[in-house]
Amino acid sequence: MKIIGHSYINPRGAFLNGQNVSIATEENYLKKYFSELEIDYPKFYKMDLLSKGSFLGDYLLRDSYKDLLHVENELQFIFANSSSSKETDIRFIESYEIKKNPSPSLFVYTLPNILTGELAIKHKWFGENIFFILTKFDSNFFIDQIEMSFLRGNEYCLCGWVEMKGAPEDECFMFLVAKSEVVNDNLSNKLNEILNTYRNE
């Protein structure tokens, strides 16, 4: 397998393949990145933090998708985080406990895998998807899942660690992996290196 692209978003900056593409100082950094990228996608405003983060992380990767064949069926989403949809869960609880009106538009985002639905809709991709809850980013876990996905017949995996709950340590790390004949023993180490470099930027 081969990593063919990666992106990273946190409250301080947005990055693509190791390069800084935007710097943020304001609180609403996701809105800033969205407007800088000049994307026409009004649904963005309705999304929760998880979907917004992964939507932007995915958009940054757009050039990596260009030459891929069969992505609509053979690309699997493998996503994970540690706190599920906690930020939206709390807001939904507030909608019925404080505002006395359970909000349907919040309730539909109280599942972490909604972000994979948003990405599938955006691309019109019908492939497999799965969302895991892990205590922390675990590169070996992702590599295992990717290997098993390729064994099942998929050709690409779009993976993401999307931990966004409105905190300074929020981050959305995404990487696109293609099936290849090249045996790469150190992929797990490489993933950790990439993420650590981003985290220290």
Binding site: N28, L30, K31, F34, Y41, P42, K43, F44, Y45, K46, R91, S103, P104, S105, L106, V108
Partner: peptide
């Protein structure tokens, strides 16, 4: 109501459709 805090009232036009892919992209929810 729709938690669109990234938008301001000026972003919403009086006569543009709220639903569907144009305008605000709202749906049945």
């Amino acid at each position: 109501q729709l938690n669109l805090e990234d938008l301001t009232p000026a972003d919403i036009k009086n006569d543009s459709p709220l639903f569907g892919d144009e305008g605000l992209g709202l749906d049945s929810i």
